[in-house]
Design a binder for these strands. Structure first.
Length: 895
RNA sequence: GCCGGGGUGGCGAAAUUGGUAGACGCAUCAGACUCAAAAUCUGACGGGGGCGACCCCAUGCCGGUUCGAGUCCGGCCCUCGGUACCA
């Protein structure tokens, strides 16, 4: 056996063994319990980054663990191959997106293989392959037939120089990333899919997804955003038209003092035709991008339309404003405004004080039921009068001894709370909850409104004005109609030139002009379309006659899905939706695609930079920086290795090209081997937290594998000759102690495997190796070493599969560690004669006592009270209470 | 802005879920081996005080519940992810 640990040959041999034995090819077998383990497939960006390595090592560790538990495991891999970066590369380097993408796939596949992941490569798929995307085209035509796909206008970012639609990512500080021109909003016709038809089911089913992190379920609940409210119609003064609005607070209806509509609302458009000032405001609202973060952080602005709305109950006329914070895409694109009880409305009326928007309070806290202001002693007029003097209208009325002295300038969140209505005509005296129903009933009986459930979730706009995507299988007929394409797949032409202006497909008559004189749709699908169902296609990867076949019913749902937390809402919600669409087509049986979900954290690293005279930053890779530390290891400065000049610390950030703080997995594997890289990424952080890169830590992981190797190889002869622990009459004290440590660590590791806390699994293995190193060369010591090593190798096998595969065979434990039985804890190894109790006095640790393991409560108390330090702290005080936690702790409450 | 995380030694973290704060590892320091270096091995290692047995402080900040709080509750600060055309 070789003396030094050299991963290169070992890893190549192990991988060759798995290939030759087709170890990871999954075969459907109804008699065996299946386990479908899936990691989110990568976008083929060029090279693997550490985020991929981490994601796939977590997934592979779980897959191998489940396999060692005896399950029939499927773990496939593929490529999310359509997307924007391929078009960018095409523009930059003049390579067709397909060529760039396919060569990236080839390179990254070799990188994945070098890491030894247990994938069934026979099932590999790439979403840019027509044999893949034809089935989502087929499903889309079904959705069209069912009315679940429809045309609607939607807002996009428009670059007026490049004459092209921009992704939100391509809008930087309100400007196009290439042209630098201020971005505008533009409305275009798009395909949408009715995800809102499934909103209630998508929401309800979250309760049953016990295997998902609670935070992800909460995010999806909030994203779907179910609300119960009232739809109602205001009149338009001097017109037969109505202005429909949705509100979740109909109880504040009597406090409405103005209305706000989106700049794109038909009312605003028509006002703009009449009034140049309104037109200028609407034009101003077109500036800027469409992202919610941008819209919501924007300065809230509005402009009067010169139109009045008519209050549905009082008939009072209230002015209508166009406002940049009302979103056309949510509800009806119009809102009623109640500045007394809504923070945003309050801010707006304060900002436009010059328009004299009244603040009309109609709700007081319920605890005020008996106060004068509510009883009417302090009249509405009195409140109104105080408004004019600039004092706060409700809670801070000057001279009212029961009010708190809040000022007009301040907002108090209590104003937004439900309460009891006053100043509300027929509804005065009702609670908010009662008023909700009463007002809805009143509106309904007068034909002016009704209760309605509304979702924040919007239908899914799937059209993209891009080239490198799946063609939308639709034809525009000669009579101006639309029909689904029947001849599938609609193939994307791959020999194209991409130059960054418009879509190349639009300039390809051979693609867009059909012999029939009809025009083919040139938009492509959102790439989330492909990634919403790939997990299912792996099951039926080679089915040429249908989207899915019977095999999908065997494997689905995915038992464990692993991927980044950044996908918590969009991808994971679209995939759940798509699954239900496929279910309703009869393609799958189950209701949800992913039974358990693990969301892994990001890989982050230090950043270092220098600033030039114009403030531009140059970023240096941490590997090229020499850090100076003080006596305690605290960073005191840093210089660039190449020139010795200082560099500035830029914080810990996600590994990225722009900050030049990435670590190349390939060079690490070349230096330390795949097992070290895998072990390091599993050991350094728990899977769901961010992982901070540290080169010295990699060295430490390597050192551990060397220690394991040295122990196994150095003692291989006595290990192979050693007897079983069970056959020995008894163990000497030190061997028994080591065995107790091994089985204690094993117990911990088994628990941690189940909850996927893999970093402490590695810790437990390190603890074992440390204990095994301390063993003597007695028969007992040899037996414990043999047993301990066999346990440790099996526990490590899912994480560091190559070296454990090798040592397992070399030590004669068996041919293939993958087929070994999973270790079990021997509880008798954990037994002790005595138990150590911590003794606290008033909650502070004051001593420790050792008592026989079978001591009763009284004996433990007596031992605690006998301890010298404990007695000193109790002193003259009387012990009033004694808390005993069996096997752990005694707390004496004295005073 | 809104939604969801995170904050514990010089650093990554652990704490079997309310019961000894810092397991395991990295870095650092000291020692052994060595002509020397590397590798390896041994030891020390949260802060402060004490000759010492020991004592005080300490889990982002402020407050609360409890015999007992890193863990539960309320408020705040910082930071990261998402925010519907990045994937």
């Amino acid at each position: 056996m070789q003396q030094d640990y050299d991963p290169r040959g070992i890893e190549a041999a192990a991988q060759a063994y798995w290939d030759a034995n087709r170890s990871f090819n999954a075969v459907e077998d109804p008699r065996r319990e299946k386990f479908y383990c899936l990691s989110m497939f990568p976008y083929p960006s060029g090279r693997l980054h550490m985020g991929h390595v981490r994601n796939y090592t977590i997934g592979d560790t779980i897959a191998r663990y489940q396999r060692m538990l005896g399950k029939n495991v499927l773990q496939p891999m593929g490529w999310d191959a359509f997307g924007l970066p391929a078009e960018n590369a095409a523009i930059k380097h003049g390579i067709p997106p397909s060529q760039w993408t396919r060569s990236n796939i080839e390179y990254m596949k070799a990188q994945l293989r070098s890491l030894g992941f247990a994938y069934d490569w026979d099932r590999e798929l790439a979403t840019c392959d027509p044999d893949y995307y034809r089935w989502e085209q087929w499903l889309f035509t079904r959705l069209m037939e069912k009315g679940l796909a429809y045309r609607a206008t939607a807002m996009v970012n428009w670059d007026p120089i490049d004459q092209t639609v921009l992704a939100n990512e391509q809008v930087i500080d309100g400007r196009g990333w290439r042209s630098g021109a201020p971005v505008e909003k533009r409305e275009i016709e798009q395909w949408s899919v009715r995800i809102t038809d499934y909103a209630q089911e998508l929401l309800d089913a979250l309760d049953g997804l016990d295997g998902w992190p609670e935070q992800v379920r909460t995010m999806q609940r909030n994203w779907i955003g179910r609300s119960e409210g009232v739809y109602m119609e205001f009149g338009i003064s001097g017109s037969d038209e109505v202005l429909g609005i949705y509100t979740t607070r109909p109880d504040t209806l009597m406090g409405v003092t103005y209305m706000a509509v989106a700049a794109e609302h038909p009312l605003a458009r028509r006002a703009a035709d009449r009034d140049p000032q309104v037109a200028a405001f609407v034009e101003e609202c077109r500036q800027g991008g469409t992202s919610e973060a941008e819209l919501e952080t924007m300065e809230k602005k509005g402009h009067p339309l010169g139109i009045d709305a008519v209050h549905p109950v009082t008939g009072e006329r209230v002015p209508v404003y166009a406002a940049n914070f009302v979103l056309m895409g949510y509800g009806t694109g119009a809102v009623m405004a109640v500045p007394a009880h809504d923070h945003r409305d309050f801010d707006f009326s304060k900002r436009y004080k010059r328009y004299g928007i009244p603040i009309r309070p109609v709700i007081v806290p319920e605890t005020w039921r008996n106060r004068d202001i509510y009883k009417g002693t302090m009249t509405d007029t009195a409140v109104g009068a105080r408004q004019l003097t600039g004092e706060h209208p409700v809670l801070g009325v000057t001279g009212c001894p029961e009010c708190e002295p809040l000022q007009w300038e301040l907002w108090d969140e209590r104003f937004e709370q439900p309460g009891i209505l006053f100043n509300s005509g027929p509804f005065t005296g009702l609670t908010s909850a009662e008023a909700f129903d009463a007002i809805a009933t009143w509106l309904e009986s007068h034909g002016k409104g009704r209760k309605r459930v509304n979702f924040r979730l919007r239908d899914w706009g799937v059209s993209r004005q891009r080239y490198w995507g799946c063609p939308i299988p639709v034809v525009h007929t000669r009579d101006g109609g639309i029909r689904p394409e029947t001849d599938l797949p609609v193939r994307l032409p791959e020999d194209v030139v991409v130059d960054g202006s418009g879509s190349p497909l639009k300039r390809m008559p051979t693609f867009s002009n059909l012999p029939s004189g009809e025009i083919r749709e040139t938009d492509t699908f959102d790439t989330f379309f492909e990634s919403s169902w790939y997990y299912a296609r792996y099951c039926s990867h080679d089915c040429a006659t249908a989207m899915l076949d019977e095999r999908a019913r065997y494997w689905l749902p995915v038992d464990q899905y692993v991927g980044g937390i950044e996908h918590a809402v969009l991808h994971l919600l679209y995939a759940r939706f798509f699954h239900k669409l496929m279910r309703d087509e009869g393609l799958v049986d189950c209701d949800e695609p992913f039974a358990r979900l693990l969301t892994q954290g990001m890989v982050v690293a230090e950043t270092w930079y220098r600033e030039d005279t114009e403030g531009r930053k140059e970023w240096f890779n941490p590997a090229d920086v020499e850090v100076a530390r003080d006596d305690k290891g605290k960073i005191v400065g840093a210089v660039l290795k190449s020139d010795g000049q200082p560099v500035v610390f830029g914080g810990i950030e996600k590994m990225s090209k722009s900050k030049n703080n990435g670590v190349d997995p390939e060079s690490l594997i070349g230096r330390y081997g795949a097992d070290t890289v895998r072990l390091y990424t599993m050991f350094t952080s728990p899977p769901d937290q961010s992982l901070e890169w540290n080169d010295d830590g990699v060295e430490g992981a390597f050192r551990f594998l060397k220690r394991l190797w040295a122990l196994a190889v150095g003692k291989s002869e006595s290990i192979m000759a050693a007897g079983s622990v069970a056959n020995l009459p008894s163990l000497d004290v030190s061997s028994a102690a080591a065995r107790r440590e091994v089985h204690g660590a094993l117990k911990k590791a088994l628990y941690d495997y189940e909850r996927h806390q893999l970093n402490t699994v590695v810790s437990a293995c390190m603890t074992m190796v440390n204990a095994l190193y301390r063993l003597d060369d007695t028969p007992g010591g040899q037996a414990v070493l043999r047993e301990g090593l066999s346990i440790c190798l099996r526990l490590l096998a899912p994480i560091a599969p190559h070296v454990t595969h090798h040592l397992w065979r070399e030590l004669g434990f068996g041919d293939d560690i993958l087929g070994s039985t999973w270790p079990k804890v021997d509880e008798t190894a954990l037994l002790r004669d005595t138990v150590a109790y911590v003794v606290q006095v008033n909650g502070k640790v004051r001593g420790k006592v050792e008592v026989p393991a079978d001591a009763d409560r009284a004996a433990v108390e007596a031992a605690a009270l006998a301890d010298e330090t404990v007695r000193r702290f109790v002193g003259e005080a009387t012990v009033r209470k004694v808390v005993v936690v069996p096997g752990k702790l005694v707390n004496l409450v004295a005073g």
